[in-house]
Simulated assay, not measured.
Amino acid sequence: MDLVVTSLEVWDGVWRRNQHLVAGLLRRDPSLKVLFVEPASDPLHAALGEGEPRLGRGLRPAPAVDGVSPDALWLFEPTKWLPRRVDRRIDEKWARQVLKSARSLDMTDPLLWVNDPRGALILEATSWPALYDVTDDWTLADRPAPEIQRIKAQEAVLLRRCDAVVVCSPALALSKGADRPVTLVPNGVDTAAYAVSHERPADLPGGPVAVYVGTLHDDRLDLELCADTARALAGVGHLVLAGPDALSAGQRSGLVDAGVVLLGSRPSDAVPAYLQHADALVVPHVVTPFTDSLDPIKLYEYQAAGRPVVATPVAGFRDADDEQVTVVDRTAFPAAVTTLLHRSEAPDASHATPAPGRRLANIDWARRVDQLAEVLASLSGRDER
């Protein structure tokens, strides 16, 4: 079986949902071949902003993945030469590039797995069986009106024409399943990575630390709350944010000036060490319709790490049945984190990291791979549209 995945994220050392699921599927089925389509490189946008302009890396074999044949996984990163407002056919050109790459790999009738809504254009151009995997409700994000309109139009095509729709959260199941059947496949965690104790990372500040691991973006992070929390921790400990940095220069400098420690992106296999050695794990997220659509991967990672958690009342955490998770509103958040760090300095404070228990077995990525494999199997035998 061949599979074309249009992803909203690159394939790199920071593994997210798509990478865990794709790698798991490849390990299950040695005959599977995957074309993983990454977001396009945008050299003009980079040149006008803070990035380093570069061309897309095109079609290439993926870096080695344990248990996966070297010729089973291919990556394709196109180049976006112009903004949509200048070239209104940019998405059609993207779709043609994806189809050309699939043909070059001798993929004649693959399954299409759409995570990036632009995959609607591939769906319309082919008769491929298709799955829409909804991980974020971008129709609710704070974006310019033309972008929201584009996403809504593409999603309407996907919800109407895809053979199956998978969602990662109960909120998405309600919204996307209003007019058609959907399958809930939540996010997960590599529980084996947390079953062993890791050494304290050398770049963690000394003393008590409150740690957040995830993409730094104001779609999710409450930047003002992060700054307030860092100031509240002055003299007690540090607020540490680790993850891919999508902040503006002004946002970044505001956090640093408040005392936040920014570590930058860390590979997924290093994340358990940061979480295990946190005195508190924190989720200083904004509460919006967009964040309410999410199923945060960090919920599962934090639970596997077994450390105390303080979160704003965001989806996933506010409904967690876990005595380690404290949910507070943003006004009480800095004090709750400060209390945990003070408590960690007590002479009888325990810093032992519990091994994952039986309750975590159902949230391992292996279980999610099983669930998705069932959906894909149902598509591979479907009747032609």
Rank of each mutant, 00 (worst) to 15 (best):
R358T: 13
L372A: 04
V337P: 00
E52A: 11
R96P: 00
V327N: 04
D257Q: 13
A249M: 10
V165H: 04
E301M: 03
G207F: 03
D71L: 04
L233V: 08
L73A: 11
D295Q: 07
A130F: 02
R16F: 06
S169L: 08
D116L: 10
P308D: 05
L241T: 01
K100I: 11
R16I: 08
T183V: 15
A234N: 12
L131M: 08
V236M: 11
H217S: 15
A120N: 06
A311P: 11
S380D: 13
D321G: 05
R343M: 07
F290T: 00
D257V: 09
R161A: 13
Q251N: 09
V166D: 06
E92N: 09
N362M: 13
D29V: 07
K152L: 11
S127N: 09
T353R: 14
R88V: 07
C162K: 00
C168T: 15
G316H: 09
G214A: 08
R103E: 15
L140P: 00
S253N: 14
R96C: 09
W15R: 10
V256T: 15
A355H: 04
A141W: 05
R160Y: 01
T135P: 02
L275H: 02
V165S: 06
D116E: 14
G250E: 15
V213E: 09
K33Y: 00
E374Y: 12
R17I: 05
K152S: 15
A234V: 07
G67P: 03
D269L: 06
R385L: 12
V325W: 00
L294D: 07
W15H: 10
A47Y: 04
V157Q: 07
T288A: 03
G264S: 05
A192Q: 11
V236R: 14
A125V: 10
V37E: 08
R118G: 12
L121C: 05
L281M: 12
A373E: 13
L159F: 02
F317I: 04
D370W: 10
Q154M: 14
D269N: 06
A332H: 10
A278I: 06
L372V: 12
T326C: 06
A141E: 10
P110M: 09
E52P: 00
V86T: 08
A346L: 14
D91R: 10
W15A: 01
A352V: 13
A273H: 03
L216E: 04
R252H: 13
L25N: 02
S197K: 13
K33A: 14
G49L: 07
P78E: 10
L73I: 06
Q149G: 06
A40P: 04
M107L: 12
A305M: 03
V189P: 03
S41I: 01
L340C: 05
D137T: 05
Y212A: 03
V328T: 05
